[in-house]
């Protein structure tokens, strides 16, 4: 390496620490938001599960909780699968069809939650 190169390199040595700081700030802002939210979803799933389980025998995998974040309104979607024999006796459509009863095997609820 020539002497000139040595001086050029030390003079123009890039400051990498500010880049590290900026990358971390952006990453952690994102990760903190995400981890907070996924915790909330897990808690919701557990609590909803506890309430439903009082009335129906439901499986852990039978409950899906999703949150989608929109510009103005965010939606919270809760989908609960209940085994058909346990389904409450809603009057079935008066059809003589002997085939599979069309009882709603799935009770899906959608609640809208406004995010602050």
């Amino acid at each position: 390496m020539k002497l000139v190169d040595f001086f050029k390199r030390t003079r123009t040595a890039p400051h990498t620490a500010p880049v590290a700081r900026e990358r971390l700030q952006i990453l952690l802002a994102h990760e903190r938001a995400v981890s907070g939210k996924s915790d909330l979803i897990a808690i919701l799933q557990e609590e909803i599960m506890a309430v439903i389980a009082k009335h129906f025998p439901v499986e852990q995998e039978g409950i899906k909780v999703k949150m989608e974040r929109g510009e103005v309104v965010s939606t919270l979607e809760v989908e609960v699968e209940i085994p058909t024999p346990m389904c409450p006796s809603f009057p079935l459509p008066a059809k003589p069809a002997p085939a599979e009863p069309a009882c709603a095997a799935e009770a899906a609820e959608a609640a809208e939650a406004e995010m602050s």
Partner: peptide
């Protein structure tokens, strides 16, 4: 190294 901007300095880490 922190003084030369090659390593995160104490203030950076504390702020984050």
């Amino acid at each position: 190294r922190a003084g030369r901007g090659e390593m995160l300095n104490v203030e950076d880490v504390l702020e984050i």
